[in-house]
């Protein structure tokens, strides 16, 4: 009996050790499931030197981002394929793009949708059903101490 228990324990632990898919480890939360995300809103904020918001604008229901696991032509850098679906009065339009996510940063590129979503974002919220990506703007030299001058926020929830 003891031998059976310990044998089963060996097998379970070995399976646990080797069952992780390293390739998808970083993008586990973002890519789990079908990868359809609704972009609820996108906000652009501009700050003054004290950090106070002096101008902002928000667009609701920006579109839907469909993320695939399939690698793109730039798979060497981890890029995968995606489609940005935008609905207007003429119907729904699909704009292909590429994305890469490493747990902290998301880069979207080659999207030619009317609403520009290209860029490298920092992940502010990384949950199974909710994501918030942000691009920060600061004045002056990229190596100097500077203040936050603007922020572009994109909030996504998993599509039902």
């Amino acid at each position: 009996m003891k031998k059976i228990i310990s044998g089963v324990t060996v097998l379970v632990l070995a399976i646990l050790f080797f069952s992780c898919n390293k390739e998808d480890h970083n993008s586990k939360k973002l890519c789990r499931g079908e990868g359809r995300w609704t972009v609820d809103f996108a906000t652009n904020e501009i700050y003054d030197s004290t950090g106070k918001v002096i101008w902002d604008t928000t667009v609701n229901n920006v579109g839907e981002l469909v993320l695939f696991r399939t690698g793109s032509l730039e798979a060497l850098y981890g890029y995968r394929q995606a489609v940005f679906l935008v609905t207007d009065t003429a119907g729904t339009h699909a704009y292909p793009l590429e994305y890469v996510f490493d747990g902290k940063r998301i880069t979207l590129k080659y999207c030619i949708a009317p609403y520009d979503i290209n860029g490298t974002y920092s992940s502010a919220i990384d949950k199974k059903n909710e994501q918030q990506w942000e691009i920060y703007g600061s004045n002056g030299n990229t190596s100097a101490v500077t203040s936050l001058t603007g922020k572009f926020i994109m909030h996504l929830t998993r599509s039902k």
Partner: peptide, 23 residues
């Protein structure tokens, strides 16, 4: 090494606006 820049409002940036940001 997670190298980030934290702004006054607590936003933690890994983005390209700061040279050293990155993983």
């Amino acid at each position: 090494l997670f190298c980030s820049y934290v702004y006054h409002d607590g936003s933690e940036s890994f983005g390209p606006e700061k040279t050293l940001n990155g993983i």
